[in-house]
C-alpha cells in the first residue's frame, strides 16, 4: 500500500483532474517536461513493472509522432532539408516532439490514475450523484471477469463435445460465434437473476446506508488545499500569458520573466507532489525500521 493510495478519493480525484487539466491542454515545453517527469517518477513508485512495460511501447510511439509531424506540417521558417519536394522544418520536428512528450505524459498520468483511483473509489465518489449510472458501471466492471471465466468454461465444454473446430478460418469463426452466443444467453439470464436477487435484498430502498472505509482527514484537506492553490496559480499565470509559447513560424524562447518562473515553479511542485509524499513516507519507514 503506497501512501497516495490511502488518500481520500475526493482529494486524489481532484489532484489528478488538476494535473491533467494543465498537462493535456498546454504546448509549453517546460510544463510538459515537468508533467512527464512527475508522472514517470510517480508511476515508477506505484508499479515498476507497469513503468518498464510502458517505456518499451511508448518510446517508439514518441519517435513516430515526432518524426511524422514534419510530413504533415510545413510551417516554420528554419528549413532542414527537402523531402519529396516538401520542406522539412526544425519547428515542425520540435513541435512533433513536444506533442509526443504531452501524449506520453498524459498516458502515464492516466496510468497512475487507474492505479490509485480504483473503481470502488470512483463509485464511492459518484454513487450518490449518479446512482443509476454508477450501478451500471460497477455491474459492467464486475461482469467482465465473470464473463471471461464463463467464456473459458463454455469453450472447454464445446471442445469436449467435439463441436469446436479450428481447421479453417470460417470454421474457427463459426465455433467462436457459437461460444459467444452461449455466453450471451448465459450472461443475460444470469444478470437478470442478479437483479432479482438485489431487489429481494432491498437494493436502493430508502434509508439503506452504504459501507465505506474512507475518511476525510486533515491530511487530505491539506493535500486538497495545496493542489488547488498550485493549480489556481498555474492557470492564472497561463491566462495572464506567463506560459505562452509558439512553435510557428519561429520558435519563441522560453520566457524567464518572474510570472513565467512562478508558473513553472507552481506546476513543477504540483506534479512532484505524489513523489514528495511517497519519498517522505518511505524515509519515515526506513527511519522507524532503523530504530527497532
Amino acid at each position: 500500500m503506497r501512501a497516495f493510495e490511502s488518500v481520500h478519493p475526493a482529494a486524489a480525484f481532484a489532484y489528478f483532474i488538476s494535473v491533467l487539466l494543465v498537462a493535456m491542454f498546454t504546448a509549453h515545453p517546460v510544463l510538459l517536461c515537468e508533467a512527464l517527469l512527475g508522472a514517470v517518477l510517480f508511476c515508477a513508485i506505484l508499479s515498476a513493472k507497469g513503468f518498464w512495460k510502458n517505456m518499451a511501447s511508448y518510446v517508439p510511439l514518441f519517435a513516430i509522432i515526432a518524426l511524422s509531424n514534419p510530413l504533415f506540417s510545413h510551417n516554420g521558417v528554419t528549413m532542414l532539408f527537402f523531402l519529396n519536394g516538401n520542406p522539412v522544418t526544425l519547428e515542425a520536428v520540435l513541435y512533433g516532439a513536444d506533442i509526443a512528450v504531452m501524449l506520453i505524459a498524459v498516458i502515464y498520468w492516466f496510468q497512475c490514475y487507474s492505479f490509485v483511483m480504483t473503481s470502488d473509489k470512483f463509485l464511492y465518489l459518484f454513487g450518490k450523484a449518479i446512482p443509476k449510472l454508477s450501478l451500471v458501471l460497477s455491474m459492467a466492471l464486475r461482469f467482465i471477469p465473470l464473463f471471461k471465466a464463463q467464456l473459458i468454461r463454455v469453450n472447454r465444454a464445446q471442445k469436449a463435445m467435439g463441436l469446436y473446430s479450428g481447421k479453417s478460418f470460417t470454421d474457427k469463426l463459426r465455433s467462436a460465434g457459437r461460444v459467444l452466443l452461449a455466453l450471451i444467453t448465459w450472461s443475460l439470464e444470469n444478470a437478470v437473476e442478479t437483479g432479482d436477487s438485489m431487489r429481494a435484498r432491498g437494493y436502493g430502498l430508502h434509508g439503506r446506508s452504504h459501507f465505506a472505509l474512507f475518511r476525510f482527514t486533515g491530511r487530505d484537506g491539506v493535500l486538497l488545499g495545496i493542489s488547488a492553490a498550485l493549480t489556481g496559480l498555474t492557470l492564472t499565470g497561463r491566462a495572464l500569458g506567463g506560459a505562452d509559447f509558439a512553435f510557428y513560424p519561429r520558435i519563441t524562447g522560453i520566457s524567464t520573466a518572474p510570472l513565467s518562473l512562478a508558473v513553472y515553479l507552481a506546476f513543477g511542485a504540483l506534479t512532484l507532489l505524489p513523489f514528495i509524499i511517497e519519498t517522505e513516507e518511505s524515509l519515515k519507514w526506513t527511519y522507524f525500521v532503523s530504530k527497532i
Partner: peptide, 15 residues
C-alpha cells in the same frame, strides 16, 4: 432491468 441489460451489453462488447 434495462439497466442490467445495458451493463451486460457493455461488458460483453468490452470482452
Amino acid at each position: 432491468k434495462l439497466l442490467i441489460l445495458i451493463a451486460v451489453m457493455a461488458a460483453l462488447s468490452s470482452l
